[in-house]
């Protein structure tokens, strides 16, 4: 990991409030799928950088898919080609591809995305391609996004929208059954993560979660982003963001 100024190659809106930013990866550090970076524009405010998972790594570029939610992501969305921003990373423990694939020949892996939780799955699916049979179940409030990006790497896509505008009407948990898979990997809002964990537990299927938390340092020093786990309070930034679902304790 390192911290440096990066140059924006492109930064475009792909759906309402959803942006995709590609920067020149001049350092070309090895990045695991599921890892994240801390991004901050050169503006003084807001103070802290924002943690964004890596969407894709290709041809000496890094791509981040992000939702504009507050001042930090609003600043990021305003960046234009050629502008610089500070990026620290890659950070955290990403997906362990060998662990996911295991000894099985082409294991069946399901990726479950809730909204912007789809962000880390492009690079993950790319990394799993040819090693596993990858399916995607993606849930959105309304219009889906970032699906076309994944088509190249996944064998099957099921979509749910809460307003029924596309695919199955309702939550993403309606469109899959964990027993059909060897491993389920989820990234999305907490209620979805809790539900997916529970479904996999019932089905006795291995479940891996990529967690999100408010962060300050992003490097494991400040203990601001800890979550409850069976191993005590663990740091999402340094011990995660990828956790075995059995370890994560969801607060009631």
């Amino acid at each position: 990991m390192t911290t440096d100024l990066y140059t924006v190659i492109s930064n475009k809106q792909v759906a309402p409030s959803i942006f995709s930013m590609t920067v020149k990866d001049h350092l070309n550090l090895p990045v695991q799928p599921g890892q994240f970076h801390m991004l901050k524009t050169l503006a003084a405010e807001p103070l802290l950088p924002r943690p964004l998972s890596i969407n894709d790594v290709e041809n000496e570029t890094l791509t981040f898919l992000y939702e504009v939610k507050g001042d930090g992501t609003k600043n990021l969305a305003a960046l234009t080609t050629g502008q610089q921003l500070r990026i620290t990373g890659p950070l955290g423990q990403g997906f362990n591809i060998d662990g996911i694939v295991g000894n099985a020949r082409l294991p069946k892996v399901l990726l479950v995305a809730g909204g912007i939780g789809i962000a880390p799955f492009k690079y993950l699916a790319r990394s799993l391609a040819k090693k596993a049979t990858v399916s995607l179940a993606a849930g959105f409030r309304s219009n889906p996004y970032a699906i076309d990006d994944l088509k190249e790497f996944v064998d099957d896509i099921k979509i749910a929208t809460e307003d029924g505008s596309y695919g199955v009407e309702g939550r993403v948990t309606l469109v899959f059954n964990p027993v059909d898979f060897d491993v389920v990997i989820a990234c999305g809002p907490t209620p979805m993560m809790r539900a997916v964990k529970e479904m996999c537990k019932q089905a006795k299927v291995k479940c891996i979660l990529s967690m999100e938390a408010r962060m300050a340092c992003g490097i494991g020093a400040c203990l601001g982003c800890t979550i409850r786990t069976t191993k005590g309070m663990l740091r999402v930034c340094a011990d995660g963001p990828v956790f075995d679902a059995n370890e994560v304790i969801f607060n009631d």
Binding site: E45, L47, L48, R214, A216, L223, G232, M233, N251
Partner: peptide
């Protein structure tokens, strides 16, 4: 174990913490 719930909150030019 430290505190439960939110541990960080950003303010104008500041950071609140309750680790």
């Amino acid at each position: 174990p430290g505190n439960h719930g939110i541990r960080l909150h950003e303010t104008r030019a500041g950071l609140m913490n309750s680790i």
